[in-house]
Structure formats: C-alpha cells, structure tokens
Amino acid sequence: MLFPIESGLAIDIRHNNMYIGIGIAFALLALGIGAIHWSKALMSDKEYIEHRHPTRGKDATRAAAVQAFSEANEDSGFGRRAVIRNSLIAAVIASILPGLTLFRGLAPHNNSHGNPIAGDPVALLKHTMWEKGMRLARDPEGTPIRAADVTLGSAFHVIPEPLAELGHEEGYMEEKAKAIVLLMRLRPEQLIEAEDRKDWSYDGIVAYSKVCTHVGCPVALYEQQTHHLLCPCHQSQFDVTDHAKVIFGPAARPLPQLPIAVDDEGYLIAQRDFTEPVGPSFWERH
C-alpha cells in the first residue's frame, strides 16, 4: 500500500498527508494551467454585447398575471369568504403551537438524574459544589493543598476535593465549570480587604472564582508581579490585591471570592459556598 500509516508513527502520518496533499495540489494546478492556456491560446478574445431588458415584466404580462390571480380568487372565493378564510389561517397558525411544547424536552425536568434542582436553571446557577469544610485540591489530580504549599507569589488551579471523584455521568464537567478557583498568595500587607471580608483570606492566601464575570472564560492568567488576573478571551483584568475588582476590559463585576480557612491538618478548606453566583450575568441573578 502506498504511504502506509499502519505503524502509527508520527512521521508516517505526516508523509501520508503531505504526499496526498501535494498530489491533489499538483493535479489542480495542472488543470488550472491547462484551462488558462486554453483560454489564452485557443479562444477568441472577442467582446460580445448583450442588450439589457428591464427586470420588470411587460405590461401585458403583468395584466395577464393580475387576470390569473383574480380568476383564481373568483374560483376559490378566497376574497369573498372572509370568515372561512380567516379561520383557515388561524387554524394553520394554531396547528404550529402544540409543536413548540415539544421543545421543552430539550432541557431536563425536575428530579432527573436524582438532582432535585435539575429542572431549575436559576437554582443551579446560584450554587456551586463548594461547602463548609471542603478541602481545596489541585486541578485535575484532586490532591488537597496545604497552606504551607502555597509559597509567596505562587498560583494554584483549584477544584473542590470531592470533584475529582465524580464521574462523567455524575456531572463532573458541569460542577467543575462552576467550581473552579484560582488560589494565590500575596504578602498580607499588599491585600486591601473590606471589613466583612477580613477573615476570608488566610495569611495572604486568597481564592477567587476562575470563571470570568464577562462571558465565562477561565481567568487563568496570573501576573505575579502586578497581581492582576487576565482573561484571555476578552482581556478583562482583575486586581487581586483589591477584591479582584475590574481594572480593564468588558467584565462588569469583580470575581466572586471564596472564603477560605485552614483545618486541623493544615489543609486549606472552604468556609462556605460563594456568596454570589459565579460567572456571567443572567436575568434572575438578583
């Protein structure tokens, strides 16, 4: 067989694609050159003239069309029988409406997959899987993070520890899409903290939602020197030293902060779920 790829070697794959591609390119180029040469060498270069006609139909044609229309109207009584005609139109429109109800089936109903809020998008959007005492773990391994591991200037991509145990069927992706967090350690004196959020950080370690408040991309780029978080999709920037407030770009709100603490064994834990919905705005958010 020509250009075998059975061996599974990367170089075979490359050669296979490249030679087929070059073959196609050469064949098409030859066809193109042939067509051009034909037109240049064999065909006359004479200009032809074609007269324009208005697109509008001739008056006689239009009169005949009107005639046909009125005859059809006369025959069917479409214009005369207004009540019957209008009820026909209404019935045709009404016949479509029951079909629309079928589309409710696009989304799950209550209690599907054993989740009591599965049929309620607003309830789902307002909660993540973070709970009091849940350990912060590395994404994607799920190994818990000690406060001591988070050295000054470092950043961690974080998931809730139990998430790593969830299977695909148990909503791993859906839970992860809401619960992802970025963890950073700054010098405590660099942090500007509101009175009610004083105990949300631990020794300069802060955790913020990684889901951009603009349209939901992962705010995964941490500028260690400036303490800015950057969203790669639309360049929103958030100031980690000041409640992740928006300092640039289209995001409308600061990133929600996850209140954290440390348990008896020195692992970082969540104090509770986020205090506001994560991610982009939605109508029922407030």
Binding site: P121, E174, F282
Partner: peptide
C-alpha cells in the same frame, strides 16, 4: 445567558441543562 428575560432558560434548553 445575558439575554434579558429569556437568557437563562434559552441557555438551559440549548445545552440540555447546565453548561456544558
């Protein structure tokens, strides 16, 4: 989701539940 009034449910219907 940012569409007024219908956004949340529209997203829910299109994605067959929560994203993704």
């Amino acid at each position: 989701k940012g569409l007024p009034l219908i956004g949340t449910w529209t997203s829910f219907l299109i994605f067959g539940g929560e994203f993704p």
